[in-house]
């Protein structure tokens, strides 16, 4: 992936030097292993800070909302789909963007890797499909395929769907992946089992809202959880309120979520709240043939009416 790195630095420096953009949004090395941080680069000299590896799971489309300047943005498959969604929802215009497309090879799951080892991880290095985790000076070898983020393991849009320039040739898309095994498992449960599964899933939630803040779709100036007149949902950790927050957030992402995994990645207690958005993603696909963010030319199912929209739930 080092060839990506050079190309990203080169393109970014060029764009800034030629004043084609006012800034480039990308990643730089974070202060902790597996935590690359988003950064805004304003001049060509600083482009050298930019990095790319398997720890760039944060969705950069999140930083585009209502921006006024000309922006270069590094975009993997899912970021590009959220950029499309942002453009469709008038949160940024296509003309403002110079999209630097990165064919993605999947991000590694920091929750999973942290859980695999005792002690503090000092370093995580990668070389192609090999990951080396260093703990107390001792190196442990892992296969990247075994520690991919769950959403990346079933991702079928790794190449950017929209870009001005690519940093490399497209990667081969994964075929024959079963995207919805986890959702089907829940769908097969009785109501009571579902209730209990979600109760357990959400019980560690501390309402920190990292999941919603990491999500590019959650850009409302005042989120429903923060409103007080009327107060839609209590602010504490009553399980009813926690669940209301999660269900409503998921519904607000219906037909928009790209399953980028930024929400799950951000959660400090490792909750897989993606099962909710994924159910809606599955329904969008199965009932409306819709996958979010693939094209600028079609309106999403929630803001169009078609005579053949499924309606067999209405009597």
């Amino acid at each position: 992936m080092s060839e990506y790195n050079d190309k990203i630095k080169e393109i970014s420096a060029r764009l800034l030097k030629e004043c084609q953009v006012d800034m480039v949004i990308g990643f730089r090395k974070g202060s902790m292993p597996m935590m690359n941080e988003p950064c805004f680069i304003n001049n060509a000299e600083d482009a050298a800070q930019l990095v790319w590896d398997s720890n760039c799971g944060i969705n950069l489309a999140n930083y585009l909302t209502n921006r006024k300047e000309k922006i270069g943005i590094i975009a993997k498959g899912c970021d590009s789909r959220n950029i499309v969604t942002h453009i469709i929802e008038n949160k940024i215009s296509r003309e403002q963007l110079y999209i630097i497309g990165v064919p993605c090879q999947g991000m590694i799951d920091k929750h999973k890797i942290n859980a695999m080892f005792e002690g503090e991880i000092q370093d995580v290095a990668e070389n192609g499909q090999k990951i080396t985790v260093t703990i107390d000076g001792k190196e442990n070898a892992l296969e990247k395929a075994d520690v991919l983020q769950k959403n990346c393991a079933v991702c079928i849009h790794r190449n950017p769907v929209i870009f001005d320039e690519m940093v490399a040739e497209p990667v081969e898309e994964q075929k024959d992946v079963d995207r919805y095994a986890d959702v089907r498992e829940i769908e097969a449960m009785t109501s009571e089992e579902k209730w209990n599964t979600f109760e357990e899933l959400l019980s560690p939630c501390i309402r920190c809202y990292a999941c919603k803040n990491a999500c590019p779709l959650c850009y409302c100036p005042t989120c429903f959880v923060d409103e007080s007149k009327p107060q839609w949902v209590g602010k504490g950790q009553d399980p009813t309120d926690v669940r209301t927050f999660h269900f409503l957030r998921a519904f607000h992402c219906g037909g928009r979520c790209t399953d980028c995994g930024a929400c799950e990645r951000a959660c400090p207690v490792g909750i897989n709240m993606r099962v909710f958005t994924k159910k809606l993603e599955k329904d969008s696909f199965e009932q409306f043939g819709w996958e979010a963010g693939l094209t600028l030319d079609e309106r999403p199912p929630l803001d169009t009416y078609r005579p053949d929209d499924p309606d067999d739930f209405i009597r």
Partner: peptide
């Protein structure tokens, strides 16, 4: 969602 389907009607 864990709500009995018969509780909701359209």
């Amino acid at each position: 969602m864990g709500i009995e389907p018969d509780r909701i009607h359209y």
